[in-house]
Amino acid sequence: MMKALLKTTMLAGAWAVSALVFAAEPKLPAHSQLDCAKCHDAALIEKFKQLQQQLGKDAAPGWDRVAEAIPLNEAAMQALGAKCADCHAKQAKDLAASGHAMTYAQSFLNREHNRMEPPMDDCLRCHAMFFDGAAGDLVKPLDTRGPWRMADEKLAGHRSIMCVSCHQIHPERWLSPPSVAAVSDRRTATEDTPRRSETAATEPSKLVGGAATRKAGFFDRREHQFFPADRLPHPKVFKDGKPLKLSDDARIRVCYQCHAPGAAHHAGTSDDRTLRGVHEGMSCLDCHSTHSLDTRAACAQCHPASSNCGLDVTRMDTTARAKASKHDIHTMTCTDCHAKVPKARQ
């Protein structure tokens, strides 16, 4: 009981703090209020207008239809990605300084990794979402012997993860394919009564994580689709056959698309970092800042700077990368440090 209460308080505290951080951000106009030319070049806009005229209708032509008419290759995606920083300078800077800022060369020429497992198509799912080809077009050879090199040296510096990996730029209502309801609506719709098909798509998300569950998501290259977090599956993870408590924060679904356990969803398998131990049930975003991934400020939100044992929590080795550390935040339990823990508190 005590433990549960403590945890809830901690979670609530962390949540309140991060909400405050969001509120402090300067207010930017919605993407729907921007001119196309803010991000796109004239040639693309012209192509789009042609498509509109060809279709001869006032309904949005739908995602797939636009993509067929205006396919974007990786170079175009990289160029578009760079535009985000014009408005979102802080986020871009944070991302650039984070572990997510890896390049293709860093992702695919990692000798330690490639000796263990060869580069393969599945790597592209997280490490080259927008690449125009298969693994063999990106890195050679596809084996565990190496030496590995980029198939094309020009690719080396490309970003593995861009803003559009996790963010959908256009409002979803613009992207829906036509529907019979929308066609019927068109005849009755006026300035004041929006189309049914639009209102349905813009209903605010009620999930934990708030509006971010619509803004953040995952681009799945296998489906060529962006999945907003509110539509991604919520992870279930097991430890010793029992389900672990996972945060209700829908934003963690994005994390789990890449930081995923194996098919049986056992904690700690594959790339899984599910919190188990004393931090079980917290959200990834309770500690990690969304773009910088930085966690240093997080511990002190709940813990006294100096813990009972005199260790400075802000200097403890808490990262999952430190395999030898007893203080990996994702797995640490009371008994990792305390020899005698009352049974009731374990």
Binding site: C36, W63, A67, I70, L72, Q168, R221, H224, F226
Partner: peptide, 11 residues
Amino acid sequence: FVKTVAAGVGG
């Protein structure tokens, strides 16, 4: 590879 994520439909 048809990319859909940033296709413009703003107009």
